[in-house]
Measured scan of single mutants.
Amino acid sequence: NQESVVAAVLIPINTALTVGMMTTRVVSPTGAPAEDIPRLISMQVNQVVPMGTTLMPDMVKGYAP
């Protein structure tokens, strides 16, 4: 099972992602793949992402898996 990126903390809208904001988990439906964490760092979210929420590609500005 592939791990997806999950918010480790509450991420406010327009916040640039840091490694400490993200964790990985096997979830369904799958979100952004765990191996993309290095690409996701410094990208901004376009909505509030509550802690424990799977990071879906459409939540991150300019990100395409």
Score class of each variant (00 low, 15 high):
Ser4Val: 07
Val27Thr: 11
Glu35Gly: 13
Met59Pro: 05
Pro33Cys: 06
Val6Cys: 08
Glu3Asp: 04
Ala16Asp: 06
Gln47Ile: 09
Ile37Gly: 04
Asp58Tyr: 15
Met51Lys: 15
Met43Glu: 04
Ser42Pro: 01
Gly20Ala: 14
Pro57Gln: 01
Gly52Tyr: 06
Leu55Ser: 01
Gln44Asn: 04
Asn1Leu: 12
Ile13Met: 14
Val49Asp: 02
Pro65Asp: 10
Arg39Ala: 07
Val60Thr: 02
Ala8Met: 08
Thr54Gly: 04
Val45Ala: 04
Thr18Phe: 08
Ile13Phe: 10
Ala34His: 04
Asn1Ala: 14
Ile37Lys: 01
Ala64Tyr: 14
Ile11Thr: 01
Gly52Phe: 07
Ala64Met: 14
Arg25Thr: 08
Asn46Pro: 01
Pro65Tyr: 07
Asp58Cys: 14
Met59His: 05
Met21Val: 04
Gly52Ile: 07
Pro38Phe: 10
Ser4Cys: 08
Arg39Asn: 07
Val19Arg: 15
Ala64Thr: 15
Val49Lys: 02
Pro50Phe: 09
Ser42Asn: 15
Val5Met: 02
Leu40Ser: 02
Asn1Cys: 14
Glu3Cys: 12
Pro38Leu: 09
Met21Phe: 06
Leu55Tyr: 02
Lys61His: 13
Val49Leu: 05
Leu17Asn: 07
Gln47Cys: 14
Met59Gln: 03
Val45Asn: 01
Val27Cys: 08
Asp58Ala: 12
Ile13Val: 13
Ala64Asp: 11
Gly20Ser: 14
Ser4Arg: 05
Leu55Gly: 02
Pro33Gly: 02
Gln44Tyr: 12
Pro50Tyr: 10
Gly20Thr: 13
Met51Pro: 12
Ile41Asp: 01
Ile41Gly: 00
Val45Phe: 01
Val26Ile: 14
Thr53Ile: 07
Thr54His: 04
Ser42Cys: 11
Tyr63His: 03
Ala64Leu: 14
Glu3Leu: 13
Pro65Thr: 11
Leu10Glu: 13
Asn1Ile: 12
Val19His: 14
Gly62Cys: 10
Tyr63Gln: 04
Met22Glu: 09
Met59Ile: 04
Gly20Gln: 15
Val26Ala: 11
Val9Thr: 11
Gly31Glu: 02
Val45Thr: 12
Gln47Met: 09
Asp36Gln: 02
Asp36Trp: 08
